[in-house]
Amino acid sequence: MSFDIIKYPDKCLKQVSAPVDTFDFKLQGFVTELEKTMRAGPGGVGIAAPQVGCFQRIVIVDVSDMRKLPANSSNNGCMVLINPEIIEWDGMTMGREGCMSVPDFTGNVIRAEKIAFTAFDVQGSQHEFNSEGYEARAVQHEVDHLDGMLFLDRLVSRRTDLFKRKVYKQIKESPLPESGEGQA
């Protein structure tokens, strides 16, 4: 059995999730079902508990099966991340994102190229991870869900091109999209 995915504009997706404080069999069972839900979706490389109506800080990311993953890109395999906290950001890169909770729309989002983060596993042990590229993007996308943020909150103008985005290279967190608008 997998869970139903909550879809925007359901306001539930905009709420902040609470930390997990009990690491028990119930949690393990939930994580198993959450992973099944992620794998049931087309092309899904990550999922966050709020997407299935559980407002606890739990995400799963697994980019290892990505068909087009660059040969030289490293990844951590299937990561179950409980109470994840991103502690370091480095570099900025633009990439295309979609979301199981926002069907039929994708957009460009600027994310950190490399991140370091901590998280607990289902047994309650804390670990530290380093991610870059596609996996780092997936982790940032999923952690955003725990804070009620969707990729829609971080869209950049489609006229934000490779030349203009150099401006963002020195920005470490939450860059604001360039307006790119005329007077009208």
């Binding site: 990505m66 993953l69 295309r96 999923e142």
Partner: peptide
């Protein structure tokens, strides 16, 4: 010219 693949992340 520059060609960049777009690998759309679905999360």
């Amino acid at each position: 010219t520059q060609l960049t693949p777009i690998d759309t992340l679905v999360g």
